[in-house]
């Protein structure tokens, strides 16, 4: 284990091989559309809503489905009966910093593709993983906050609840589904491309004789 760690430390300055650089560049390209497609999709179905209601979370916006995006208004109208605060874009600070962070990660990714080594690649990966985990927690926290802080004077009393972050839940007469949307799959793809890049360069460092790493091990 120690030997592995020390080997790890010694190869961090290993420049990325060509194929890895291509994959990192591909990862960068995968980030670009995430600004334009939804990251998360919540949908609400009930007997009297034959088309359902949809809510799309973009990196920078909260967008209702339906004509003119009116599903968001409708969700708010319905929620007022149970005393839930209105979902307002301006209350979601996430929508301000998420695009910024994606942009930062993108710049670092591009840098790695151009002049990077394993160290800078790992930096980007660690940062992206943390960003992903934090965003998910933040999303859950927000939903939980809305579901738990209900106006006690509301017309309809329901027990505080956490709306689903991932999966399905019955809320009153509504079936609520919540699933990642295309943008999140793109972010996953971004991670896979980086993993692939890491793997390809890492592999060359463990080859026999050819790679500097093998030499250093031998020594």
């Amino acid at each position: 284990m120690l030997a592995w760690l020390s080997r790890f430390a010694t190869v961090l300055d290993q420049p990325l091989i060509g194929k890895s650089r291509l994959l990192v560049a591909a990862a960068f390209l995968a980030l670009i559309p995430t600004f334009f497609v939804p990251l998360w999709h919540m949908s609400f179905g009930a007997q009297q809503y034959p088309e359902g209601l949809d809510l799309y979370v973009y990196s920078h916006a909260l967008v209702g489905g339906g004509e003119g995006g009116n599903d968001l208004t409708e969700i708010n109208v319905l929620n007022h009966y149970i005393g839930m605060d209105e979902l307002r874009e301006e209350d979601f600070t996430e929508l301000k910093w998420i695009p910024l962070v994606i942009g930062l990660i993108g710049v670092l990714t591009l840098r790695t593709a151009a002049i990077g080594n394993l160290r800078s690649l790992l930096d980007v990966m660690v940062m992206a993983a943390y960003f992903g985990a934090f965003s998910l927690w933040s999303f859950w926290y927000k939903l939980d906050f809305y579901g738990k802080n209900l106006d006690p004077r509301a017309a309809v009393n329901v027990d505080p609840f956490t709306p689903p972050v991932f999966g399905h839940k019955m809320v009153g007469q509504f079936e609520v589904w919540s699933f990642p949307a295309f943008g999140t799959y793109l972010l996953l793809g971004f991670g896979l491309f980086l993993l692939g890049a890491l793997f390809l360069t890492w592999r060359t460092t463990t080859g026999d004789g050819e790679s500097p790493l093998a030499t250093s091990n031998g020594g």
């Binding site: 995968a30 559309p33 497609v37 489905g65 295309f182 799959y185 996953l188 793809g189 896979l192």
Partner: peptide, 22 residues
């Protein structure tokens, strides 16, 4: 149908642009 399409969105489609439509 839409729901399943969302869940089962294949990774292969990653670089194929396109919005998920309602």
């Amino acid at each position: 149908k839409t729901k399943h399409r969302l869940i089962a969105l294949p990774m292969a489609a990653l670089l194929v642009g396109g919005l998920i439509s309602c």
